[in-house]
């Protein structure tokens, strides 16, 4: 039975550290003129996306290809799922073709855990419902670790995650990953955009977070979806931006050391109302770049029986 990556919580602090250390090695591979190694030659990775996410799927498939794995894509819109085939039948059929890892994106909480129970292949959760998106948490922490050169953890690091926490798997996994590494995470949102029960530090005033002594080390802005207004969660987006957005005025007040992050895709003018290119601390592009290295690390960790030293040397990749 392969191991799987389903959530940051199940990975644990040691597991997070192991993946981030491995991501350093993968980042080195990615800097080579030919960023491809034979480490996973002969392995097959199948991405099964029940919810559209071209960015995440491309990131995983690029990661798999750089490790020389074969990749397959199961496009749900073209599949028999529309003909009533069950999730279980789909997974068991693909598994029977000989797959070493499934990369699963599903709109339902828990779907990757169900899949994990039906196959011996490794299962990587690429986002389930509002629940979990572990590789996002890993790439976010990896990005901060690289930017600050803090490979040993985040003790004392102050992180503020701002916006629609309630409906965000990114918020849950990124919070779990930063917390696992010792950072202090504060959620900044109106009560309507928080889960019913909250254990984290909560602040409903972004300015209080920005203006406190020492400011904040990481300001993580979540995507705010238009449809939230229809559910009476916020009165309108203008008020949301005024209360919680990164406006030019707030950008000007950021402490020089504050890093600004966003999981993408960004709603310009809503949660981020400035040009991120003009923010000295913006790490948004690095998040995307680092996503490849982190996902390579995850695939390698789950699928390779060898040590990185053995299998990451340059060589024939056929």
């Amino acid at each position: 039975m392969s191991r799987s990556l389903l959530s940051i919580e199940e990975l644990g602090t040691a597991g997070v550290q192991r993946i981030l250390d491995l991501a350093d090695t993968m980042a080195e591979v990615n800097r080579r003129p030919n960023p491809k190694v034979p480490a996973l030659r002969g392995k097959t990775v199948c991405s099964v996306f029940f919810e559209d996410s071209t960015r995440t799927r491309l990131s995983f498939e690029t990661a798999a290809k750089r490790l020389s794995a074969d990749t397959m894509t199961f496009a749900v819109s073209q599949s028999s799922l529309n003909k009533g085939e069950s999730l279980r039948d789909t997974i068991e059929t693909i598994a029977a073709m000989g797959v070493d890892a499934f990369v699963i994106r599903h709109k339902s909480t828990g779907a990757p855990w169900l899949v994990d129970g039906w196959t011996n292949a490794a299962v990587i959760n690429a986002g389930d419902g509002w629940h979990s998106h572990p590789t996002q948490g890993l790439l976010d922490t990896y990005t901060v670790r690289t930017a600050l050169n803090r490979p040993d953890g985040f003790d004392g690091l102050r992180v503020a995650i701002v916006g629609d926490i309630k409906h965000s798997r990114v918020a849950r996994s990124t919070t779990a990953a930063f917390t696992a590494l010792g950072a202090d995470v504060t959620w900044v949102a109106p009560r309507t955009l928080l889960p019913p029960v909250v254990h984290e530090h909560v602040e409903n005033d972004i300015d209080a977070v920005l203006d406190r002594d020492g400011g904040v080390d990481v300001l993580y802005m979540l995507r705010m979806q238009q449809e939230r207004m229809n559910e009476a969660l916020v009165p309108n987006l203008r008020e949301y931006t005024a209360r919680f957005g990164l406006t030019p005025e707030r950008a000007a007040r950021l402490a020089p050391h504050t890093l600004v992050m966003h999981p993408g895709p960004m709603n310009r003018g809503v949660e981020v109302a400035v040009d991120p290119a003009e923010l000295p601390g913006a790490l948004i592009t690095q998040q995307v770049t680092n996503g490849i290295a982190v996902r390579m690390a995850v695939l390698f960790d789950l699928l390779s029986a060898e040590s990185p030293e053995q299998s990451l040397t340059e060589g024939p990749t056929t």
Partner: peptide, 11 residues
């Protein structure tokens, strides 16, 4: 149920 578990599970 709306409570601790649903908050964690994002349901």
């Amino acid at each position: 149920h709306e409570g601790d578990c649903c908050s964690h599970l994002g349901l």
